[in-house]
Design a binder for these strands. Structure first.
Lengths: 336, 336
DNA sequence: ATGAAAGCGCTAACAC
DNA sequence: GTGTTAGCGCTTTCAT
């Protein structure tokens, strides 16, 4: 039967007392610091095991006046992109050493739950945030409180890792235009200052082609919101022959809306998403989508976070990756 | 310009000095403890705001010898079920008060990253774990180190909240049998002691009907693993006319495998998943699936966690919810 | 209503 | 190689 650690977890003092040495040695032993004889070390580990001692990383950070935990903020746990970013971040962090504390904003009910706040209170040393929706000034303020790496969105003066949304949205829009579409609509996410590059790039591309952009903002980033908004878009007098959406979830919603109205894809409506999620690849879905290389994004963010942790004075990082349009069967020339 | 808190975040002492009172009063004020005059309180909050003081929840926990953070372990961030559980847990936790620290096991690459371990090191007061794959004894050991609530899986002697997998798997299997299928296969997840109720229930249901069960374990819980395993299943001499899978991701993989082999669903193959995920509901996917009410599961777990935190001596909770089979177009009678 | 002092589990000089 | 001591930011008796 294991010792009952529930009442009072063993501490370094307990281990020290058990072995008959000072707390310092126990501390040194556990951190692999030099200056502990092999024998003592053995004895310490032995006693620690027996007592069920586990280092208290939190107290250690407090004493060290140095926060080793990295906080990862994810905007939307239901979006695969964020799972990929998490994966990437993990790859970049050393196996042990840095603890990773997660915090997600909206999960299904749109409840924020003070996700960022909880990271700050947990006293992480740095926050990797994907995706921040706040205005730039607010992000800068946050970065003042705790070092921040902004992922998927560039913020001047703050370490940023992102995909070139301008290029991605342009590629998507041009793909539709090159197929012969003229009434190409854009289904945007909710309006947030920091998240409008795709929309702007779409609108510019349309105007450059001499066409009138039509953007509709959904009230959320979810499939349901996409369905609601797309229904509006598709029941207009002159409905668009193609829709480019801010993300795949919105595209899937638009897809449901189209089928609900009896429209075929790509026969009556071409559809381009953004994220290149796993669902987009399914047989029968075959959604044309822009891949933003989320795993690479996460990896870069993790690396930058580590550097920032080690050197607060390092120059601000600004890393931009190039997205890639993946063409599938949801896009085709418009019906004649 | 905001004060630069990066160099040294303001502490209670700073605030106390600023106001000209003792640290104790600042502490009292921030916790709403009685015994601080209205005026002093005002002055303290004012100074705190000016200095950009933020309470250090971690240090507070240390001093209080009481851990207020609740840790949430999620097995698979790419599975919607876990996003729903997170939502439910959040609903149950009071807005402020308890910090929620997340930790996920496999994200995309199967890297564990010591997810549970990191929760323990973060010194959470209780861990809500969904889904633990370890054998019962190991779970009991863990629960010794820190109170644990097991979600989606019952463990004797440990607070548990789960869905009735036996009933769910039976309903799924019986549905296929009632359609007239006789060669019904089961695509299970990787073999873990704690996660075999669905498989066992399927096998029992088959035998009770006088049929021979055929179970194949995928090497992961992912769509890719499902596709690999299902390809094996479907290229046998006598291929099954129906497959019941451990979860929706495996079902989606089986779906890809079927299409890859030129088989129609449900014409040549009936398919039943588990989770009733959003993808299952998509037009063109229409996957028959078992809903385990993940949000309710999370809510119950959160409630139980709070109770356990307040009363370590409370009787062990065992809460079982009833799942529900949702029939869609992926199931039909077998071809004659 | 307010403050002094001890202590939470740990690290980090600095002695010996 | 080992021990002493003074914190880290906070809570909590116990005085005043």
């Amino acid at each position: 039967m294991a010792p009952d650690r529930r009442l009072r977890p063993a501490t370094q003092s307990d281990v020290a007392r058990e072995v008959g040495v000072s707390r310092t040695l126990v501390s040194f032993a556990f951190r692999g610091a030099p200056g502990v004889s092999g024998e003592t070390k053995e004895a310490i580990f032995e006693a620690a095991r027996r007592l069920g001692y586990r280092p208290n990383a939190v107290a250690a950070d407090l004493a060290r006046k140095h926060r080793s935990a990295v906080g990862l903020y994810l905007m939307d746990i239901r979006n695969e992109v964020y799972a990929d970013i998490l994966s990437g971040v993990r790859m970049a962090l050393p196996q042990d050493g840095n603890r990773l504390i997660l915090s997600v904003s909206r999960s299904v009910d749109g409840v924020d739950g003070g996700a960022l706040e909880s990271l700050i209170e947990a006293r992480v040393g740095i926050i990797i945030a994907a995706t921040l929706l706040d205005p730039d000034e607010r992000v800068l303020e946050l970065a003042q409180i705790v070092p921040l790496v902004s992922v998927t969105r560039p913020v001047a003066g703050v370490d940023s890792v992102y995909s070139d949304d301008v290029a991605g949205a342009r590629a998507a829009t041009e793909h539709l235009l090159s197929l012969g579409h003229r009434r190409v609509a854009h289904l945007a996410g909710p309006i947030y200052d920091g998240h409008i590059a795709r929309r702007q790039s779409y609108e510019k591309t349309m105007r450059d082609a001499g066409l009138k952009p039509q953007t509709l903002a959904a009230d959320d980033f979810t499939q349901e919101a996409g369905q609601r908004a797309a229904t509006l878009l598709l029941t207009q007098a002159e409905r668009p022959t193609a829709i480019f959406t801010h993300n795949d979830q919105l595209a899937l919603g638009a897809r449901e809306a189209a089928y609900g109205l009896g429209l075929a894809i790509p026969g009556d409506l071409s559809l381009v998403g953004y994220d290149n999620s796993r669902t987009a690849k399914l047989h029968g879905i075959d959604l044309t989508s822009v891949d933003l290389h989320a795993i690479a994004l996460g990896q870069a963010a993790g690396t930058i976070a580590l550097e920032r942790l080690n050197d607060p004075e390092a120059p601000v990082a600004d890393k931009r990756l190039t997205p890639e349009l993946v063409v599938r069967d949801s896009t085709a020339p418009p019906a004649p």
